[in-house]
Design a binder for these strands. Structure first.
Lengths: 212, 212
DNA sequence: TGTACAATACCCACTAATGGGGAATTCACT
DNA sequence: AGTGAATTCCCCATTAGTGGGTATTGTACA
């Protein structure tokens, strides 16, 4: 009857903190922690878990992509998002990719336990701010208030990475062997999809997803 | 003979993790944790500490500014930087502002204890990557290899905050009641001081220092 | 008491980026 | 065969950003 929990967070210290908070719940056992999304997938190849406490901002493969991979390859594993980010973009993305809940890192011990038990019982758990974020819709602009999730293409991901690395359009065009016009086009699509007004918004998105 | 340690980190969970890691060192006691720089200063008004484990990225007042304030107002308190950031800009800034060491968040239990004992013994402790960062100099460009720290002025801080918030020059100019040309001028100075090539670099800096 | 420097504000010229509008190609999925 | 997504490229008008300056004020300090 023991729940096997894996923590996916870039900070190992955080896993220790979670262990401490679950100390008086012997049935909720943190069996291991991984620091990257890819690491988590490899771990799940070797071992089993009931629930993953998944940060959105993970190196190598972020929480959103990793959650999608888990739904495909390990559908029996519950994903409980565990992040400091409250933006609708991330909450929404995680839920669409299959997360059973979204817990903020500032949550209390009691909320942590409640969230884990809720998702293991087949329910959905949303922290208050995550719930508000979903209800409020996109904050950056007036567009896309439907909250519809639009994924980025591979090419768009490449371009936004370069942008966040302070590359100019010309440099990106050279690196991708396309014309500068194409890069501008991708940039335009990125801004529309992510509902941002400027490069600043693109950079913050890339940073949040550890794409830099 | 007990060392009083205060943890300043936006994530409370991290403080719990540190407590766990120091569990078998009864003389190293984490007496409290605060989640903002301002909160730390208020705490020090009321109580005493021997050492502060200070994250660079703190809300309200970041680790760099808070360290400067501590050196002035509580010079007897040792500051040990504890961050995930390894960029020379942050390592350098913390050391110049008076930090006695720079520890990475991925450090082991043993390194944590060593770092605390070193700074309490009057020494300076630098994590390997922090040491390399200092030696390597600025990474963004070829300029400022001397590693000299250049602080930002109040006005520059205001402007970089607006930029990271996706404001246009016209909007910033209106908000500050100056001409658009002045905003451009500040932007130029910011890029030179921070050694970045584009808005992307400015945004990342503001995000790292929790100025957004 | 200069003078040196930092901070702020401003101007001009040039380049880059943004926001409209399209459009052609390929490829996958009906 | 048709639809749609992805990628590629183009034009044009406007705005933003970059890099070269200058002027004023105030402060620090030799």
């Amino acid at each position: 009857m023991e729940l096997r929990i894996v923590v996916a967070d870039a900070q190992e210290l955080l896993a220790d903190g979670l262990r401490m908070r679950l100390a008086d719940h012997p049935d909720l056992r943190i069996v291991d922690h991984v620091t990257t999304g890819l690491g988590l997938l490899e771990w799940l190849e070797q071992d089993t878990a009931d629930v993953v406490l998944m940060d959105v901002s993970l190196p190598l493969m972020d929480g959103i992509d990793t959650t999608r991979a888990i739904r495909t390859r390990f559908p029996q594993v519950k994903v409980l998002a565990h992040s400091a980010l409250t933006e609708i973009e991330y909450v929404n993305s995680m839920l669409i990719e299959g997360a059973a809940g979204y817990l903020l890192k500032g949550a209390s011990k009691e909320e942590l336990v409640l969230a884990i038990r809720t998702v293991m019982g087949g329910g959905r758990y949303l922290s208050e701010e995550a719930q508000r974020s979903v209800e409020r819709g996109y904050t950056h602009t007036d567009k896309r208030m439907d909250g519809q999730y639009v994924g980025l293409t591979e090419r768009e991901r490449e371009v936004i990475r370069f942008i966040a690395q302070e590359k100019t359009n010309a440099e990106i065009a050279a690196a991708l062997h396309v014309s500068e016009e194409t890069v501008k086009s991708h940039r335009k699509h990125l801004m529309t999809k992510l509902n941002v007004r400027s490069t600043a918004g693109l950079v913050k998105y890339a940073v949040d997803r550890c794409w830099v």
